[in-house]
Deep mutational scan, measured.
Amino acid sequence: ARCQGVVCAMKEAFGFIERGDVVKEIFFHYSEFKGDLETLQPGDDVEFTIKDRNGKEVATDVRLLPQGTVI
Rank of each mutant, 00 (worst) to 15 (best):
A1T: 08
A9T: 05
K51R: 11
L40I: 04
F48T: 03
C3A: 14
Y30M: 06
T69R: 11
D21V: 07
R19I: 09
D61V: 03
R19H: 10
F27C: 08
I71D: 15
G20A: 14
D61S: 05
K34I: 06
R63G: 04
K11G: 04
G15E: 00
V62M: 02
G43S: 02
V58C: 12
A13S: 13
F16P: 00
F48R: 00
V46A: 01
S31G: 10
E57Y: 05
R2C: 06
G5F: 02
E25Q: 09
T69G: 11
V7N: 01
V6F: 06
L37M: 12
F16S: 06
D52W: 12
A59M: 00
D61P: 00
K24R: 15
T39E: 14
A59L: 00
C8L: 13
Q4D: 01
V62C: 02
G35H: 03
D36R: 13
K34Q: 13
R2Y: 14
R63T: 14
E57R: 08
G43C: 01
M10P: 00
G68L: 07
L40H: 00
K11L: 08
R19T: 12
F33M: 03
D45S: 11
M10K: 06
V6L: 07
I17E: 01
C3D: 15
F16D: 02
D61Q: 04
F14E: 06
E32T: 02
D52S: 14
D52F: 07
K11I: 02
R53P: 06
R53S: 11
V46S: 02
D21N: 10
V58T: 13
G5H: 02
Q41M: 08
A1S: 14
K11R: 06
L65S: 06
Q4A: 05
V70N: 11
Y30I: 06
G55N: 12
E38H: 14
F28D: 02
E47N: 04
D44A: 10
E32N: 05
N54P: 04
S31D: 10
C3K: 15
E25N: 10
I17Q: 00
F48P: 00
F16T: 12
K11H: 14
A59W: 00
T69M: 10
Q4N: 03
F28S: 01
L40W: 00
V7S: 03
Q41H: 07
K34M: 09
E38F: 05
F16V: 09
D61E: 09
R63H: 11
T49V: 11
T49H: 06
R2L: 06
Q4M: 14
D44P: 00
V22W: 04
T39R: 15
A9L: 06
A1G: 12
T60W: 02
C8F: 06
D61K: 01
E32G: 03
E47I: 07
D21F: 04
K56G: 10
I71S: 14
C8Y: 08
T60S: 07
S31T: 12
T39F: 09
G20Q: 14
V23Q: 06
K24H: 08
R2P: 01
H29S: 11
E38I: 10
F16Y: 13
K34F: 06
E57G: 06
P42T: 13
D36G: 06
R2K: 15
G55E: 06
E25T: 13
V22D: 10
E47Y: 05
M10C: 05
D36H: 08
N54K: 03
G68P: 12
V46L: 00
I26H: 05
F33T: 02
R53G: 10
G20S: 12
K56I: 08
A13R: 13
K56Q: 09
